[in-house]
Design a protein around this nucleic acid. Structure first.
Length: 871
RNA sequence: GCCGGAGUGGCGGAAUCGGCAGACGCACAGGUUUCAAAAACCUGCGCCCUCACGGGCGUGCGGGUUCAAGUCCCGCCUCCGGCACCA
């Protein structure tokens, strides 16, 4: 006859508390001015990178970052902060539309279904989101303001139309931004892309390049992430210099160079094959060869171009240009003009002066085509052989070395100068001659801001006979027409072109006009969602300034590195524009940013290095073998993939162990920033910890009560356990602060193990405080324990337990005693004792090791060790 | 090629400021309990020598600084991420 047991049962307590929290809106954040808002509380804004609700549902990777911010949010609440911790949906985008094409289901329908799934899955994990602030970028109430913000950019001259070549992806039927194309293939789906001219909306992010670099300095982001952004923006300081073309009076080739100081060494020029002057200056004799090269370059995909990176190719145009350092009739200034695909039309001016003595690429090109390599340096590095080769132009040198005596044209000399001084002098001379000026160039290009797709924000734009007309604010949002067919019709235009009744409209004067049929890219809605969370239901403004003044900047933003240059750069840009409009006080949206690592999985590969799907893998003793062949397999770590059959579904983990175990396991796996493999065998370990925590309070059988008898009333705290508890509180507190959740959990495990051994000595007060510690990590179990123990009010509202610093120090400490740096014994000494007391104790602890030796030095690290240096 | 980050037991990891390497968990082994098993609890668990006491070795590799190095310096190797002819 089975007796009624009270085992730890997450399936009962988790839904109970989730319902309770939701019904009472326990995690509702209050804005200034709202009833109950306490201006004395500091604010804390903890934000997750909101998900794109895919049809696949939540992945175990999602809750990793979400749990981290949730722990910090719950901890900050306990520390008396007013915490904003919202969640929403990045709901526009390609996959919903691709899916719609395949299944004939409207993207709005699938998106709504996916959002419902994601929300249900997230709510099962007990995150302390303020769901009253939930937003979706595809909601007209939201994208009304995305359109409005776009109008602000337009008003500041930051949005323009362009026909410049853009990345076109045939398979996806859309154009892509630079960061969505990797080595000539689409980031999403890995489809080949090519460059095509197409009318596009573009945002002038380059106007903000300098500020986007400068303001990185004040941010609490990882150096590697800042470096990625700096390199993406790619600032180069140098000069623009004009070269005349022989036989083409009035035609100048303008180059950009970071080394104007090496102008004396320019021995040829290179234009990119697409440079507009190529056709004009090419001689008849060279025309056929030049045009063939241009056709060839155009046909090459970017991938082929980069693959063949090191092998230089090019053709002479037949033309000569003239180095501005020398008079027009001085033959020293006459240099040939080539075209080559190592010069990129979109960077700088699309043309370079080639200085083979100082630039590796120019050097390689000159060698291949037997062009002159005039030496310009007089190095004295001590390596005489190398110095001689550099001076003779036999070896390239891009270091800062002095210039040789012959770097002069009579009027200007840089002989003996180093790089910086020579740069200044050459630029000054060029400016005086009207032949050039200092110039800063960026790799960053303007943000291609339109897509030829249905499922995105429509632009608030009409094309009228007078040109572009913006839809008045009062008529926003411009919503999407209902359509049943989203297939790109083989033309680059968006499927919206087929919504004839929607496209054909009237302008302000009542004349016929056409709606813009491009839609905004996925990154539009996500570039300002952190602002909308501050004031999500405002119907008059995108976000009241008072609300963003209060909540911004985001104090902790957690997400994956994949958004290092895209989303994070765009969000910073929009924030700065809105700041310049006087609409947002902050210049930077995200004060502290933290990238979580990836959750990977184990997989098994055979001798050939091929991964064997999990269904074909079986354990045999200590080995893992191929089920069919019996071949021994090697365990490797890789990403989760349907193909390998190693994907872990968070729902399954919740069903088997509960949400608290899932949360705890993901935090216990290792440091948040590291990528680490999911190991199913480790999950029961944290589950056991929660069971042990439960048993500290709850007896096995009902008839013994809801809690152990000795916990029913207050009593004096056991001093040993009290000490252990204070140390645990202190450790957990510091570890949450530095986002080291794995070691915080380890500390709690240690406490529970200690407490288990002395379970009947534990007091109610101690267990209540332990529940408070556990709450950010395993909130359901903690809240249940709190309730059973009769804690006051809701645990979620309880203040963080205090630490008595006096309990963190021991009266006596054990120190290590070393002889010549090796531990040879231990000694107990009074805490903070004088050095000679410690030395005396140490000497007797290692007496046998000191016998017959002379101690020449005694090193004391108080409270830690004594080291004897002997002879 | 350039710029980041990492490499510690059978596995995941800890060591926060140069001070006892291996916390904590997993796996494994032994034990208590049980008719039995599971669960739970207790003990052990880097490698080598030793019955033991004890000793030697040990944080990717090779050097160095220091009383003391996983941690600092120099030179390599491997893996992961980013950039990649950007003038």
């Amino acid at each position: 006859m089975a007796e009624p047991k009270q085992t730890y049962d997450p399936a009962t307590i988790e839904p109970k508390w989730q319902r309770f929290w939701a019904e009472r809106e326990v995690f509702r954040a209050k804005n200034p001015g709202e009833p109950g808002f306490d201006p004395k509380q500091p604010k804390f804004y903890a934000l997750d990178m909101f998900p794109y609700p895919s049809a696949a549902g939540l992945h175990v990777g999602h809750p990793e970052g979400y749990t981290a911010t949730d722990i910090v949010s719950r901890w900050k609440r306990a520390k008396g902060c007013n915490v904003l911790h919202p969640m929403g949906w990045d709901a526009f985008g390609l996959p919903a539309e691709q899916y719609a094409i395949q299944t004939n289901t409207h993207p709005a329908t699938t998106t709504a279904a996916n959002v419902a799934t994601f929300k249900r899955q997230l709510q099962r994990l007990g995150f302390s989101y303020d769901w009253s602030r939930e937003i979706s970028t595809a909601d007209p109430k939201y994208f009304k303001w995305t359109q409005w913000i776009w109008k602000q950019l337009h008003a500041r001259g930051l949005a323009y139309e362009s026909n410049a070549p853009v990345w076109w992806c045939e398979a996806l039927g859309t154009v892509l931004a630079n960061d969505e194309v990797i080595n000539g293939k689409s980031e999403r789906g890995d489809h080949p892309c090519e460059r095509r001219p197409l009318r596009q909306w573009v945002l002038k992010i380059t106007d903000y390049a300098e500020r986007l670099i400068a303001d990185l300095d004040g941010l609490d982001w990882s150096e590697s992430l800042k470096t990625m952004q700096r390199e993406w923006i790619g600032k180069s300081e140098g000069a623009e210099i004009d070269f005349d073309v022989h036989g083409h009076a009035g035609t100048k080739i303008r180059v950009f160079t970071t080394r104007p100081d090496t102008l004396f060494g320019a021995s040829f020029m290179v234009l990119s094959p697409e440079h507009p002057l190529v056709a004009k200056i090419t001689t008849e004799a060279q025309r056929a060869a030049v045009e063939a090269y241009q056709r060839n370059a155009a046909a090459k995909s970017e991938l082929e171009r980069t693959d063949l990176a090191k092998d230089k190719s090019g053709v002479w145009t037949g033309a000569h240009a003239h180095n501005p350092l020398f008079a027009a009739d001085d033959p020293k200034g006459r240099i040939p003009v080539w075209i080559a695909d190592y010069v990129i039309v979109t960077y700088g001016t699309g043309a370079i002066m080639a200085v083979p003595a100082g630039d590796e690429r120019d050097f390689a090109f000159a060698q291949k085509f037997h062009l002159p390599i005039p030496g310009i340096f007089a190095p004295a590095t001590g390596d005489a052989q190398r110095d001689a080769r550099v001076a003779a132009g036999e070896e390239c040198c891009s270091d800062d070395v002095p210039f040789a005596a012959h770097n002069t044209n009579g009027a200007l000399s840089i002989a003996g100068l180093g790089m910086a001084a020579a740069k200044r002098k050459v630029i000054d001379w060029l400016v005086a001659q009207g032949r050039g000026q200092a110039k800063v160039t960026y790799k960053l290009r303007d943000w291609l801001f339109s897509r030829q797709r249905y499922w995105g924000e429509p632009f608030p734009v009409l094309h009228t006979q007078d040109g572009v007309e913006l839809v008045p604010d009062a008529q926003l949002p411009v919503t999407l027409p209902h359509m049943d067919d989203f297939k790109p019709g083989g033309v680059p235009e968006s499927p919206l072109i087929r919504a004839r009744d929607w496209v054909a409209t009237k302008d302000q004067k009542g004349r016929p006009a056409q709606r813009e049929i491009n839609t905004m890219p996925g990154a539009a809605g996500s570039s300002w969602y952190f602002l909308r969370f501050c004031d999500p239901r405002n119907e008059r403004e995108f976000c009241a300034k008072a609300a963003s003044d209060y909540w911004l900047p985001v104090d902790l933003y957690v997400g994956g590195t994949e958004h290092a240059v895209g989303h994070l750069l765009y969000s910073r840009f929009w924030t700065k524009v809105l700041h310049d409009q006087g609409l947002v006080r902050e210049k930077e949206p995200f004060r502290k940013l933290y990238n979580q690592g990836m959750i990977q999985a184990f997989a098994y590969e055979d001798a050939r290095g091929a991964i064997v799907a999990m269904k074909d893998v079986k354990e045999q003793g200590d080995d893992v073998v191929h089920a069919a062949t019996g071949e021994k397999l090697k365990q490797i770590v890789t990403k989760m993939s349907k193909r390998y059959g190693n994907v872990v579904n968070p729902d399954d983990v919740v069903v088997e162990y509960g949400a608290d175990t899932l949360r705890l396991y993901e935090m216990y796996m290792g440091p948040l920033a590291d990528s680490k493999p999911w190991n199913p065998k480790d999950v029961p370990g944290v589950f056991r910890f929660l069971q042990r925590s439960w048993r500290l309070a709850v007896p096995e059988f009902h008839e013994h009560g809801a809690i152990h008898a000795w916990l029913a009333n207050d009593r004096p705290d056991d001093p040993a356990l009290e000490k252990a508890l204070h140390r645990t509180i202190h450790k957990v507190d510091g570890d949450i602060e530095r986002l080291a959740f794995n070691t915080a959990i380890a500390a709690m495990i240690v406490f529970v193990n200690d407490a288990t051994k002395a379970v009947d000595k534990l007091s109610r007060s101690q267990l209540l405080r332990f529940a408070q510690l556990l709450q950010p990590f395993a909130p359901h179990l903690a809240e249940e324990l709190w309730e059973r123990l009769g804690g006051q009010g809701l645990l979620t509202h309880a203040p963080w337990p205090a630490v008595d610093a006096a309990l963190l120090v021991d009266d006596e400490v054990e120190i290590a005693v070393q002889v010549l740096g090796k531990v040879r014994g231990r000694a107990m000494v009074p805490n903070k004792c004088a050095n000679d007391v410690a030395i005396a104790a140490a000497r007797s602890a290692v007496a046998s090791h000191l016998e017959g030796k002379t101690v020449v030095k005694e090193i004391v690290v108080p409270g830690k060790l004594v080291n004897f240096v002997v002879k």
